[in-house]
Amino acid sequence: MTTQLWRVESLMRTLSARRLRTRVGRDELRRVRRGVYADQPCDDEDELRALLLCLPEGAMLARQTAARRHGFGVLRDDLVHVQLPSTVPKPRLPGLVVHRSVLPTRPVVIRGLPCVPAARCAVDLARTTRRLDALPVLDCALRSGVVTRDDLSAEVVVHRALRGVRQARELVPLADGRAECRQESQLRLVLLDGRLPPPEPQVWVHDEYGFARHRIDLGYRERRIGIEYDGLSHLDRDALRYDRDRVNWLDAQGWRMRYFTDRDLYRRPTHIVATIRAALS
C-alpha cells in the first residue's frame, strides 16, 4: 500500500491542532519531517517524497541521489542532492545539498520521484567529481543501459560552457559498459593515464574445447597479460582456494597475471603503470 503524505497546512484544513496531536499520539499519523506527516511507517523512498514536499516547485533529485535511482550509483554519499531553479530561494535543511540549475531540465519520474535525466546526471557527476571517480560513473551508466555513448556525447555538448566539462569530454570516449566494479574502472583509468594501451575489460579465457572457463578483470589478450583488483571478496577461504586453482590454470594457459590492491590503486598508481609497462615490454 502506498504511503500517503500530507503537508501540515493540508491537514489543518480538516483537523484542529488538538486533533492532530491526538492522531499523532495514537500513531494514526506519523511525523516524517518538520511540516510533513504520513499515515504509516516510511521507507527511504517515502523520506525523499517527504523532503520534496518541503522544497520549492521545480525541485528534482540530482547527482549521486538521482544516479542511484537511475541504476548507476557507484559513488557513496549519505546526503540528498537536489537541483533547483536558479530563481527560487535556496532552502537550508539538514542533510540536503542544493545544486542550482543553469541548463533547462525536464525531470523524469522514477517510482514517483522527479529526477534529473540519466545522461545529464552522469555528465554532471563526470565533470564535478574527481577524475578517478568520474570514469566509474560513466562506465556504470553505460552498463545500466539507461544511456548510450551518443547520449553522453550529446550531453557534453550541452554542458560545453560549464565548469569541469573538459574532464567529462575527455572521459566519455574512454567509458566502457563492460566494467563491473568501481575499482576495475579506476584501475583501467590509471593505465590509460599512464599512456599504456587500452586494456580490454572482462576478458574471457577459453579452454581447449572452446568453453569459457575464467574471466579476467582487465587484459591484453594478444600478449596474454591479465590484470586484476584484489578486494575484500578475495579474503574468504573458499574464495582463496578458487583463486589459487584459477591462477594455476591461467598460468598453464600462458597468461601472466598481475594483481593490485587498494594500496596500489590509491597510494601508488605509478607502481601499477610501471609493473604493467614492464610486463608489456
Rank of each mutant, 00 (worst) to 15 (best):
R195G: 01
E208K: 10
H206L: 14
E45V: 15
S101A: 10
T14K: 02
G177L: 15
V98P: 03
D46P: 01
T129G: 00
T87Y: 07
E184I: 03
A66V: 01
V97P: 02
F260T: 02
A239S: 15
Q253L: 12
R277W: 09
R215G: 04
D150P: 05
V80H: 00
D217Q: 15
R143L: 11
R130G: 10
L61A: 02
D230V: 14
V165Q: 05
D46L: 13
R106V: 15
R244I: 14
D193K: 04
S281V: 13
G210M: 10
S16C: 06
V146K: 01
V74Y: 04
L75E: 06
L93Y: 04
P91F: 01
G254L: 10
H81T: 06
G177Q: 04
V123K: 05
Q83S: 08
A62F: 06
Q83C: 12
Y229I: 02
L93N: 00
L55Y: 06
E200P: 07
A175W: 13
P56Y: 05
D217F: 11
L103C: 06
R31Y: 09
R120T: 07
S16P: 06
P91S: 01
V158Y: 09
A175N: 11
L61Y: 11
Q83K: 11
R23F: 06
T148K: 02
S153W: 11
R268H: 12
D77A: 14
G194S: 12
R34H: 07
V157M: 14
E200K: 13
L135W: 06
L174H: 08
L192V: 09
T3A: 11
W249Q: 03
A134E: 10
M60C: 11
V74T: 07
P201Y: 14
A239M: 11
G164H: 07
D207N: 11
L15R: 09
L196F: 09
R23P: 05
E57F: 02
L132W: 03
R224P: 12
C115H: 04
H81E: 11
H271S: 01
